[in-house]
C-alpha cells in the first residue's frame, strides 16, 4: 500500500516536472525542473530496490551533468523569445499528432484487452547487494556492450573536438616555447651614446 502511494506521488511529480521542462519560459527553470525529473525517477528506482542505480543517477546526472548544463545555459545566454517564435504556429500540428498517438495507445491498451495485471514485487533479502550483482555481470556478460559504450564516448570526444577546435585567422595567441627560448639580445638593445654635455 505504502509503496504504491509513494509511486503515485513521485510519478505524478515526475510527469508534471517533465511537462514543465518543455513549457517553462526561462531555460534555467527548464534545467532546474529537469533536475527534479532526475530526482523523482531516482526515487522510483529506489522503490524498485535498485538503490545503486538510483544513487548513481543522483550523483552523476544531478551532481555533475546538470551543473555543467546550467553553466552552459548561463554562459550562452540563449535568446528565448527568438527560439519560441514558431511555437504557436506549430503547436496545433504537434497537438494533433500527439493526440492521435495518445488515442491510439489508449485504444490499444484499454479497449482491446487491458494490460496484464502487475505481479507484486518480491522483496530481496536484507543483505542483498545490487552493486555486487551489477559488478558481477558488467565485465563478464555485458563486457561487449560496456566496451562499445566506451567507444561511443571516445567518438563523442573526437566529434566535439572536431567541431569546436579551429584556428581563427588573426587570433592573438601566446607561443609559450618562443617566450621561454627568448634571449636577452632579442629584447634589450644596448645603445652606446655620448654623455650629454652642457653647452
Amino acid at each position: 500500500m505504502v509503496p504504491s502511494v509513494l509511486f503515485a506521488i513521485f510519478a505524478g511529480v515526475l510527469v508534471l516536472s517533465a511537462l514543465g521542462v518543455i513549457i517553462a519560459r526561462n531555460p534555467v527553470h527548464s534545467a532546474l525542473l529537469l533536475i527534479l525529473c532526475f530526482f523523482t525517477s531516482a526515487v522510483l528506482w529506489l522503490l524498485l530496490e535498485a538503490e545503486f542505480l538510483a544513487l548513481v543517477l543522483v550523483l552523476v546526472y544531478v551532481g555533475a551533468v546538470m551543473v555543467l548544463f546550467l553553466f552552459v545555459i548561463m554562459m550562452l545566454d540563449v535568446n528565448v523569445t527568438r527560439m519560441r517564435e514558431g511555437f504557436t504556429r506549430y503547436a496545433p500540428l504537434g497537438a494533433i499528432v500527439s493526440g492521435i498517438i495518445i488515442l491510439q495507445l489508449a485504444g490499444a491498451i484499454w479497449l482491446r484487452s487491458g494490460l496484464p495485471a502487475a505481479e507484486p514485487l518480491t522483496p530481496r533479502e536484507a543483505g542483498h547487494s545490487n552493486t555486487r550483482e551489477l559488478g558481477a555481470v558488467l565485465y563478464t556478460e555485458h563486457v561487449y556492450a560496456f566496451e562499445l559504450a566506451a567507444f561511443i564516448l571516445l567518438l563523442a570526444i573526437i566529434a566535439a573536438i572536431m567541431l569546436t577546435l579551429r584556428q581563427r585567422p588573426g587570433l592573438k595567441v601566446q607561443d609559450v616555447s618562443a617566450q621561454v627560448k627568448v634571449q636577452r639580445k632579442d629584447r634589450v638593445r644596448l645603445v652606446k651614446m655620448d654623455a650629454e654635455k652642457d653647452s
Partner: peptide, 16 residues
C-alpha cells in the same frame, strides 16, 4: 542493448 549501441555509434559518427 548491442543493437542500440551500434545504432548510436553509427548515428553519432554520421551527425559529425
Amino acid at each position: 542493448l548491442v543493437i542500440y549501441l551500434g545504432l548510436e555509434m553509427l548515428s553519432l559518427a554520421l551527425y559529425a
